[in-house]
Design a protein around this nucleic acid. Structure first.
Lengths: 346, 346
DNA sequence: TTGTACGCGTTATCAA
DNA sequence: TTGATAACGCGTACAA
């Protein structure tokens, strides 16, 4: 591996000049510049940006911590982050927390040791020491898929309460009275918790009573959605509609319901959350609350670089959500043998 | 930011001792060690692994280049890579090539400048200079989702020819005679090309004639699959079964076929490739060729570290593929009004 | 068991 | 416009 010193010697100039050719070519006379360029060619010189980072105290690398790259929504937001990072000539190190706080804690530590310039994190625990320390030390970071609209954190997210409300309202408008919810574990993320509050809020506003038995918490997995919907459907008085706290869970729920012999959406309406790319490819095409994942990732990166380049007050950006009605929801049938049909199929 | 020098001063020892406490705690007397540990605490010392990498010439970082993190199969393999990298205390920088060679070329350059210790790459172009240079310079790298079984590259992959053969054979066994294929653009990856050869090979071995019009190439997208299947179904003599070169495309195809009014699988059998997690959640559940994506990622990382730690001959590992039969394929109906049904729905 | 001193590849400061 | 050189934070011979 040749260094700028080798190049300098070969070109008969100083290392400073070589460095200038690399970083501000205009500032060196064309003649000298060409000599250097040729020398670089000759020793097949490769730039060492780690050494640079060492002196400039900028690694041109950021960290991105998400719960699970397996969830297409996080894949999309990741692409948004990457796209903007690319523009800024910055690498992104990816880590999965798997919804575990300890993992998140460790990742932050490791990433900071790697001297990342900033961090984008979809956190599992808003109140833990991880974020607190980051704030105390004025380390640049942005919450992604955030639920907070104020306070000491920079954040990009949506109004999850509103999303939950929208989803439930849609079902209420279709005439449903018994509306269940399959939620991601509240201990894993507060997004699910806020969506549940939106769900409850709408129920209240609509004069429907909230029933505890109609809530099932699960991990964020396909099989979790599948198992949870079955639980709900086996209730003595099962719901006619279910709000799932993300599309991934909803996909599992769709299958679970089918497995129990239900015809969708006639026997059961399902609403998801996220509007991941495959939502319109599901059967029935999923009615869901849209979340601009890619755009949110891009925006989070924008905010982060703003923070890095000129530290200051925390920046928050809450983006728009809206309901996308597709085929997985329908009006409740008036003369329904719904109940008996379910029991028959057990 | 405090450094080991600050810690050393505070503890009244030398920097070497602090370094020892960090890297080989056993080698320093308990008494001194504790003094150092306390000092570290007091200045809230943070380890700088960039500085370490600078002297050890190891960044403890590897690069991972995939076509597109949006495709769940690549998300899974990425998790496999991360899991092993974690064990090796190594960070992974992720980059998407978007199936573009120029992007791939640039990513490799940028990553190498970042002094990554090694690279895992799902390449778009086996014959380009990118890989050639890597080999020439003896830089540790592993091809992932590779089609090569020999030569100068370390690689982890499966037999794509066999996979294509298996998929087609299944359709032949079900009695299908007109079998189409929706393939990812051959210019984007040779995986698709090999699968197509498997398809052709099986057709030949089964005494069926290969018809050029039954092959459609597309980009790797849901909408690509959707549009392509429609092209095939609009043929004067449409296929009764179609092999899609991945599940993502197959998901699009499923929708395209439904949109044209077909009943699946009765009117059309579809086989995918990959067996991504949601394959069994599709409607109908997708028959597909299984590829152990997570395991392949893990294995690629294993191979890479072996290469890094003790350079030597290239290592290849071809993993097992097999067909998973689900519900999207069925025997061709003997008395079928298939043709007319399609035309009716146009 | 601990300390001294050098080197890693680059940028930045200052002087020429 | 160019050059000389200190500095960045750490690991590691080598010495004590």
């Amino acid at each position: 591996m040749s260094t700028i010193l080798d190049v300098a010697r070969l070109a008969g100039v100083s290392t400073a000049t070589v460095s200038r050719v690399i970083n501000m070519p205009e500032s060196v006379r064309e003649n000298t510049r060409n000599k250097v360029l040729q020398a670089m060619e000759k020793c097949s010189y490769k730039y060492n940006s780690l050494a640079r980072g060492f002196v400039t105290k900028r690694s041109n690398t950021i960290g991105l911590i998400i719960p699970n790259i397996n969830n297409p929504v996080f894949a999309e937001s990741t692409m948004g982050v990457q796209e903007h990072a690319d523009k800024k000539n910055t690498r992104v190190i990816l880590g999965n927390s798997y919804y575990k706080y300890s993992q998140e804690e460790n990742l932050v530590k490791v990433l900071r040791e790697s001297q990342i310039d900033g961090l984008i994190i979809t956190t599992t625990n808003l109140k833990g020491n991880v974020l607190k320390n980051l704030v105390d030390e004025k380390f640049p970071f942005v919450l992604l898929f955030s639920t907070v609209k104020g306070g000491p954190f920079s954040a990009v997210g949506i109004d999850n309460y509103k999303g939950g409300y929208l989803a439930t309202e849609h079902l209420v408008n279709l005439g449903h009275k018994r509306i269940g919810m399959v939620a991601g574990n509240f201990s894993m993320t507060d997004r699910s918790y806020h969506r549940w509050h939106g769900y409850k809020g709408c129920l209240r506003d609509s004069g429907l009573t909230y029933s505890k038995e109609l809530l099932v918490q699960t991990d964020y997995s396909l099989s979790g959605g599948e198992a949870s919907i079955k639980k709900l459907l086996c209730l003595p008085s099962p719901p006619t509609a279910v709000f799932c706290s993300n599309d991934y869970i909803a996909l599992g729920a769709l299958k679970g319901a089918r497995d129990m012999g239900l015809t969708l959406p006639a026997d059961l309406s399902i609403v998801g959350f996220d509007d991941m790319q495959t939502a319109s490819y599901m059967v029935p095409a999923l009615t869901t609350v849209h979340q601009p994942a890619y755009e949110m990732g891009r925006r989070a990166a924008e905010v982060l670089f703003q923070l890095i380049e000129s530290p200051g007050k925390p920046l928050q950006d809450m983006m728009e959500t809206n309901l996308i009605v597709r085929e997985s929801t329908t009006a409740i049938p008036h003369t329904s043998s719904h109940q008996s049909r379910i029991n028959k199929n057990q």
